[in-house]
């Protein structure tokens, strides 16, 4: 019986670790994007708030978003951008009128990955639970709680 306890603890640890990683958000980009370091949460927020518009090599950053009803967008918006959807839409509409294009929207993870594989400079995010997708590069793994939602500026 005593010999089984350490094994159980290891199994529980592995389970929790896997759960935690499943809650992460992977920031992925077209393979044309080469960075020498992972993106920070602040960098990712600056990209989606249209403050960071160029990659270090000078190419334009094309942020890609998921549709507003998606669970991963809800977590990304609250946990990474620390905003709520309504405020962000107002903000993006204003920025659009000022000449800065809002993130492109793709309706599914597959569509988002297809877009990113084909468009140089594009960057998006997927749930970390499904492993690393093929044909893209991972720029960051951001820990975001599954319950992240709502939030405000």
């Amino acid at each position: 019986m005593r010999r089984r306890r350490p094994l159980l603890a290891v199994l529980i640890g592995l389970f929790l670790s896997d759960m935690a990683r499943g809650e992460d958000i992977l920031v992925v980009a077209n393979p044309s994007v080469t960075l020498g370091h992972p993106l920070s949460t602040g960098d990712v927020a600056a990209i989606y708030l249209l403050r960071l518009t160029l990659w270090p090599d000078g190419n334009a950053i094309i942020p890609v978003n998921r549709e507003i009803s998606s669970e991963v967008r809800t977590r990304f918006t609250a946990g990474v951008l620390h905003q709520d959807n309504a405020s962000l839409i107002v903000y993006w509409n204003e920025m659009h009128f000022k000449g800065k294009a809002p993130p492109v929207v793709q309706e599914s993870e597959q569509a988002l990955l297809t877009f990113i594989r084909r468009v140089p400079g594009s960057v998006g995010y997927v749930s970390g639970g499904g492993g690393v997708p093929e044909g893209v590069v991972v720029l960051a793994r951001l820990p975001v709680a599954a319950g992240s939602g709502g939030g405000g500026p």
């Binding site: 492109v104 929207v105 084909r118 468009v119 140089p120």
Partner: peptide, 23 residues
Amino acid sequence: QEAEPADSYVPGQGFNVGPVNLA
């Protein structure tokens, strides 16, 4: 030459045609 897959239209954020946005 960079034919992009179509993205979803979001009211208020215009139509994207390649690198061009019309709104």
